[in-house]
């Protein structure tokens, strides 16, 4: 796999040999020099045409989680997506998901950013893409799920202050509708099926919802294909080629 990666990288920067590996421990003098701003510039020109965005742990919302939690922060992700959209050297984006879910609005913000990206994007769910990870997974042009990966589909919950019961219920219902409409718009699952999975009983301990495993996610139309990194990269390269052809057609 290392070899495969290098090959792609070499293609990106015009067949240059990758830099020899750096010394294991830079001497204190080296560190001093780096402090003075004498940086090794050629190192930075190593550009890959495919960038990879990993969404791991909890998707953090407006409240900062304690440092021991593994989180994905939208204030990190969103500028990265903007940079990917702007950088002409980047031709495709691979999204790797292994998330338990998290903040609905932050998750939807990332999903909308990915869905509106003009460059080809492929998502791969490894381990888990639960809860708000579902709209992120389906937001890409093509989605993959590992055979052993799972996705939990469950109703939206709200933690915090309840002002009035009918209002809170209506607010939750609207929020849930946003997730349902996003998922059904960006995948092949029907609204009825998605809601059926969402409100199903007896699948999760002390909760309603369904835990969808790899093949089932594809069967329900939520995800496009079962696969791993190899298939995902192949598909992304295909989409990049397709995108290039389309752009060339527009110029003519």
């Amino acid at each position: 796999m290392d070899h495969d990666y290098r090959w792609k990288n070499a293609e990106g920067d015009g067949g240059q040999e990758p830099e020899p590996p750096k010394e294991e421990k830079p001497s204190p003098l080296m560190e001093k020099i780096q402090q003075l701003g004498q940086t090794n510039v050629p190192q930075l020109s190593q550009d890959s045409k495919i960038h990879c965005l990993t969404i791991v742990g909890q998707i953090e919302g407006h409240m900062q989680l304690p440092p021991q939690n593994k989180t994905t922060k939208y204030e990190h992700i969103i500028p990265q997506i903007v940079a990917i959209e702007q950088n002409p050297k980047i031709e495709g984006l691979l999204i790797i998901l292994n998330t338990v879910g998290g903040d609905v609005e932050a998750g939807l913000a990332i999903s909308e950013m990915l869905a509106s990206l003009s460059k080809p994007s492929v998502s791969l769910v490894l381990g888990g893409g639960h809860s708000i990870g579902v709209p992120i997974a389906v937001s890409c042009d093509y989605s993959f799920i590992a055979e052993t990966a799972t996705m939990t589909i469950h109703p939206i919950r709200l933690t915090g202050l309840v002002i009035g019961v009918p209002q809170t219920f209506e607010y939750l219902d609207k929020m849930q509708e946003r997730v349902v409409s996003f998922v059904t718009k960006h995948s092949n699952i029907s609204e009825e099926k998605f809601k059926e999975l969402m409100f199903d009983k007896g699948n999760l301990t002390r909760d309603i919802g369904t835990n969808v495993i790899g093949n089932d996610a594809v069967k329900y139309g939520l995800i496009d294909e079962v696969g791993g990194i190899g298939q995902a990269m192949k598909k992304l390269n295909e989409l990049i080629e397709l995108n290039k052809e389309e752009n060339e057609g527009m110029v003519q």
């Binding site: 990666y5 990288n9 590996p21 750096k22 550009d47 960038h51 965005l53 990265q80 940079a83």
Partner: peptide, 13 residues
């Protein structure tokens, strides 16, 4: 490492 460039993840520094 908060980067989307896979090359940055191979940098031992």
């Amino acid at each position: 490492v908060l980067s989307t460039n896979p090359a940055h993840f191979l940098d031992t520094r």
